[in-house]
Design a protein around this nucleic acid. Structure first.
Lengths: 190, 190
DNA sequence: TCAGTTTGCCTAATAGATTTAGGCAAAACC
DNA sequence: GGTTTTGCCTAAATCTATTAGGCAAACTGA
């Protein structure tokens, strides 16, 4: 009976790798146990159940992504900060599709409130300080940026832009230019 | 042995209802059979397998949505058309969350190419004829609009905007105003 | 070093999902 | 009315998720 050193940390980390390789939905206790060479039942001392495992992978991904974004945005402002945020976000998703899917996993409200998701929101607002937007327009803009980032990368990772010119990178760059222009001239007619 | 009249059509339609009630992921053959009062194995004469069922629900949702958008956009142009498209899309998702999730189900390339997804793309391009965008900018704009719609509604249906003012409807309206303004002044500096 | 405790992974077992194969009786077709 | 078709069944295999209880390895403290 050789011990392979299972811990919650270990399992979650390996689960994240697994998600990147075979998809977040396929990152199940059974598959994870197979990777560790242990019986599925052995995971249940470290993780409550399948949903708990997914939640923990989601929290890991949110944390990682927030760390990377935070580092990239530090010391930048305005368009520079916007583009840094956006590129880190997109690069993370392309590099770690499973973790990215995990980061969009629906968490229960309490878990979400305690997650790194709130750091994402704060950083988004910090970026908008470089533009001149009063409330409630700032919130509207935060929601727009969140939608564009999540939507574009979601479509791209789902293969929505494959086999069609021009290159997604080109669209991404131009869209960021457009968003910057939009934020500088945000229409507040209402 | 009472026959309940299973057909592929029937199952897919009921599967779509089921998805709206309990979520697309939970709309499984087992649950569907339970609803019809038949044994799970009985479904397999009408549907190849679980993945086939989900694919068919996805195709139904794409078709329905394309029909509604098409009707709403007919006879409109410019901002009017943009807003009609966007509102129909969002309303459909809020009214039919399971079908909306189904519409984002990843189809294999051939199936996707034969789906109503291509009508969506065509209609999006038709709307952009009301703005003055040459290629490749038009494609970039199509991708932006797709990202915003899919991203915003995805976040909203996932509860991303709940428990936070202002009302999502308000953000949506202002974002559409902003997109219209952006499309009219699209920066083509590159 | 050794007794006692902790704990990591096991086996056993239940319940439920997916899927295939083959059968019987109701419906549909001459 | 007899035949064919076919809709739903039972049976069975395989897989997953999950709980309960056991044994032995690893740690703990004299």
């Amino acid at each position: 009976m050789v011990r392979v050193g299972l811990t919650t940390e270990n399992l979650v980390r390996a689960g994240a790798e697994l998600a990147d390789e075979i998809g977040f939905e396929q990152a199940t206790p059974a598959e994870l146990a197979r990777r560790f060479g242990v019986k599925t039942a052995s995971l249940y001392s470290h993780v409550k159940n399948a949903h708990d495992l997914k939640t923990r992978i989601a929290l890991l991904a949110l944390e990682e992504l927030a760390d990377e974004v935070s580092a990239a945005v530090a010391g930048r402002a305005g368009k520079d900060a916007l583009i840094a945020f956006a590129n880190i976000y997109r690069d993370y998703a392309l590099k770690h599709p499973g973790r990215f899917a995990a980061a969009r996993f629906r968490l229960d409200p309490d878990t979400a409130a305690a997650s790194a998701g709130v750091r994402h929101a704060r950083m988004m607002r910090a970026i908008l300080r470089g533009y001149d937007l009063a409330e409630p327009h700032q919130t509207h803009a935060v929601r727009l940026l969140g939608s564009v980032f999540s939507g574009y990368v979601g479509l791209e990772t789902a293969g929505g832009f494959s086999h069609s010119a021009p290159d997604p990178q080109e669209s991404w760059t131009e869209i960021l230019d457009a968003l910057d222009a939009l934020l500088r001239t945000w229409p507040t007619a209402s």
